[in-house]
């Protein structure tokens, strides 16, 4: 059976350090204002007690990618073998419609190349048996690639605050929520 690759983002482990975002930026030599992966602050009372929590997201390699549906040049393909949504920059004419249509605002404009850019799940690395940069460079090992056709990890959720309604494009990303500890607060 074909794979269904997706990110599993462990917010319980994540320290909001942005190393994933910047290592990706460095590897792909992106312009300063561009991101293939974004780390976002979550509401501090999200799980009851006050904590500093962050979530790291990239392209969700959706089952029903909105980017693919709007692109006038057909620059997007969803790989049969693993479901990775690949953006072909050679075709792209930089109309930026995909960035508008993606509920997660994932495709971003490269102001120098004047074309769109998006997380590729580092398929070139995956294809040779290596991990994506953000996965191997996260200091907390908080990001994994999971074949969701193979495993259904327990205790994951498909939505967190700031993450758009998954019913629109059926994103593959799953999250592990923080498990807050006990807090002895000053009175």
């Amino acid at each position: 059976m074909a794979k269904k690759l997706g990110f599993l983002v462990n917010i319980d482990r994540c320290i909001g350090c942005h190393a994933c975002e910047i290592s990706c930026k460095s590897f792909y030599q992106l312009e300063p204002q561009m991101r293939r992966r974004t780390v976002r602050e979550l509401p501090e009372d999200m799980v009851g007690s006050t904590i500093r929590a962050f979530v790291s997201t990239a392209c969700n390699h959706c089952d029903e990618p909105a980017c693919k549906a709007v692109c006038p040049v057909g620059a997007y393909t969803k790989r049969e073998e693993d479901g990775i949504v690949v953006h072909n920059q050679d075709l792209c004419i930089g109309c930026q419609m995909c960035g508008k249509a993606c509920p997660y605002g994932v495709p971003v404009y490269n102001p120098v190349k004047k074309k769109m850019d998006k997380c590729s799940m580092c398929y070139e690395l995956l294809d040779v048996g290596e991990s994506p940069i953000c996965v191997s460079k996260c200091p907390m090992e908080a990001i994994e690639i999971v074949d969701y056709n193979e495993v259904q990890p327990a205790g994951t959720v498909s939505i967190v605050p700031t993450f758009a309604d998954p019913s629109i494009t059926k994103p593959t990303t799953q999250f592990i929520l923080p498990k807050p500890g006990k807090q002895v607060r000053r009175v």
Binding site: K68, A69, V70, C71, P72, V73, G74, L91, C92, I93, G94, C95, Q96, M97, Y109, K113, K114, K115, M116
Partner: peptide
Amino acid sequence: LHLGQPLHAYRAILNFGVSWLS
């Protein structure tokens, strides 16, 4: 003018089957 690659605008009709923009 709105396109990053105005010279390649002609490609915008390629995805007629799917894309409303095409």
